[in-house]
Design a protein around this nucleic acid. Structure first.
Length: 559
RNA sequence: GUCCCAGUAGCUCAGUGGAUUAGAGCGCUUCCCUGCGGAGGAAGAGGCCACAGGUUCGAGUCCUGUCUGGGAUACCA
């Protein structure tokens, strides 16, 4: 990767200068290598000379001069310049850039990947909605984030498990069963009220109708457990179908009840008692969270003898580590931000290192419909489901998931999002996702056109890349070669939304190239440049498709 | 009260301690089809980066405080 190669080049230059006595001997300070905002400042710049000024006791500009004087030879660096007060600006070599087309062609299905994970096991846990109803807008962001984080980790060499954690027992589920029972009996002519705190959503009526059709009057005699089981089955089928529409597939559905049945919750309770990090007070069992760096102690077993939600969560996270995951990512909504420090504290109390557990908290989505904020509550049945959203933004040409996924990945999860439903539908044809997809479709169209005119892939495969020297061609290449480090950075920062920016910039560069450079020409004199540009188009197509695939967005050949 | 997140263009939002031009999309004002997809391109208007201090050679970015908005503060999950 260029970025990491540059860091080592800079270090080599510094060591060489020190060895030659042109720089004093000092430990290299931390320095950055970044993309300057101003294109005149090259493709990369480093601040090492400024950072070194103090330890070296030299003027930054003098240090920079020495580093440049000792700069090692490398194929991809075209120009190294110094700018006051001591920036070293690095420009990529044009010939090298053009040759990268071949590298991209040869790695059509893997371009952008790297290997920081080195095959280690990672787990991304997301969605994890209990089966009490259809997935709503509230779950959409976590779903998209989680799936894309998982893809990014895979692209950087991790062996990734996508996991969905759920609980189909407890009070919530009992209420769900009772609510379904009421709906069924209603259809059979028996009037009953939905229990206090029960689920009033419309979807339970549909489940009830299906059950009545299948079981008829025999439903009068069924136990509560029957209804609970049927409700869970139906809802999970619905959830999986929704996830499938979003293009999301989990490797593991992990049931919280298993933690109890296999004694893992109990074992964790015992171990905590043993560790001295839990104690009894007011008939309950408390975790000494205050001794683990948190504000206050927390109840882990209620005076009734039932564990609080923290206990199974602690056992679950211990289990994640025991299952051999070196890296664990949990994705929660903002409403959970207070709970995970407790859980991690419990895991630490049991002697586990939690450095490998990262949490992404995303803010809420506020929905506007008709200019009014849509209030959401699962129990009262007031919500907009992901299915409804997908239906709203689906067009003949483009599946709704592309709009939903791309849109959610244009925002940082730290920022709350306002999603105006009317606007999303109205503007759908001018959504950024179309801009990027249009770029891909346009390339495909050019390649089709070229094939019709006798420039099929066989004809241009050996095109001369050294002919790619136009500024717009080089600008496009500059974006393309940055994909690997863009992916690495997005993965490292667990920030998949960075990929939408990359995709948009790449598409913009392509449109600029298309404006400036005629690709398919019937003039025999243009034969060679046509072949070279077709290779560039194909490499761009690959790069765009790879970027979109990491976001879970399709790269259409036609729109 | 305390904690977490945010405050950047009319709207929705990007922005990695760097460089006398802070970006995108939408909206607004003008242009560009006798060449491969105009779902595109060119130009323009629109900003005390909430406010006040501080750290630094250098701050939209880091620190402290204030204000505003959202969320969390259970022996609910």
């Amino acid at each position: 990767m260029i970025h990491t190669d540059l860091i080592s080049l800079i270090q080599q230059a510094a060591r060489a200068a020190q060895k030659a006595g042109d720089l004093p001997t000092y430990d290299l300070p931390a320095f950055s290598v970044e993309h300057p905002k101003n294109a005149e400042h090259g493709d990369y710049s480093t601040n090492i000379a400024m950072q070194s000024a103090r330890p070296a006791r030299m003027a930054p500009i003098k240090i920079a001069e020495q580093l440049v004087a000792h700069w090692p030879i490398s194929p991809f660096v075209g120009k190294v310049e110094i700018a006051p007060p001591g920036f070293i600006n690095i420009t990529l070599d044009n010939g090298w850039l053009a040759q990268q087309v071949q590298v991209i062609e040869e790695n059509a299905t893997t371009y952008g990947n790297s290997n920081t994970g080195q095959g280690r096991k990672a787990q991304v846990e997301f969605v994890s909605a209990n089966p009490t109803g259809p997935l709503t807008i509230g779950h959409a962001w976590g779903a998209v984030l989680g799936d894309s984080v998982a893809s990014l980790l895979q692209a950087t060499g991790w062996d990734v498990t996508r996991e969905y954690y759920f609980n189909n027992g407890g009070r919530q589920m009992r209420l769900l069963g009772e609510s379904l029972q009421v709906r069924c009996l209603e259809l059979l002519g028996e009037r009953r009220a939905i229990p206090q705190d029960g689920y009033q959503g419309e979807y339970l009526r549909w489940v009830a109708a299906a059950l009545v059709a299948e079981y008829g009057a025999s439903l009068h005699d069924k136990e509560l457990d029957f209804f609970r089981g049927k409700a869970v089955d139906a809802i999970f089928a619905n959830i999986r179908a929704t996830l499938d529409r979003l293009g999301i597939h989990f490797d593991v559905y992990y049931n919280e009840l298993d933690l109890y049945e296999t004694g893992k919750v109990n074992a964790a309770v015992q171990a905590l008692a043993h560790s001295g990090y839990s104690y009894q007070k007011d008939g309950a069992t408390w975790l000494r969270a205050a001794d683990l760096g948190l504000k206050q102690d927390r109840v882990i077993i209620k005076s009734s003898g039932e564990p609080t939600y923290r206990m199974p969560d602690i056992a679950y996270h211990v289990e994640k580590l025991r299952r051999g995951f070196d890296f664990v990512v949990d994705i929660f909504g903002a409403d959970h931000h207070a709970t995970w420090p407790d859980v991690l504290a419990g895991v630490r109390a049991l002697g586990y290192n939690t450095d490998g557990i990262q949490v992404i908290i995303h803010q809420f989505i506020t929905l506007l419909r008709g200019g009014e904020e849509v209030k959401m509550s699962t129990r009262r049945g007031q919500f907009v489901t992901i299915d409804e959203l997908l239906d709203d933004v689906t067009t003949e040409a483009i599946p709704g998931k592309d709009v939903v996924r791309f849109t959610l990945l244009t925002r940082s999860p730290d920022s709350p999002m306002t999603f105006d439903l009317d606007l999303a539908v109205k503007q759908s044809s001018e959504n950024p996702v179309y801009y990027v997809q249009y770029g891909h479709a346009r390339i495909c169209s050019i390649l089709r056109k070229a094939a019709e005119e006798g420039f099929g892939p066989d004809m241009y495969a050996a095109g001369d890349l050294t002919l790619l020297t136009h500024p717009s061609e080089l600008a496009l290449l500059r974006r393309m070669v940055a994909l690997p480090e863009a992916v690495a950075q997005a993965a490292q920062q667990l920030a998949p939304h960075q990929m939408s920016g990359f995709a948009t910039e790449l598409a913009t560069q392509f449109h600029a190239f298309y404006r400036d450079c005629r690709v398919v020409s019937s003039d025999p004199a243009d034969r060679e440049i046509t072949r070279a540009r077709l290779r560039l188009c194909e490499a761009t197509r690959i790069t765009l498709a790879r970027t979109l695939s990491l976001m879970g967005v399709t790269a259409p050949e036609r729109m």
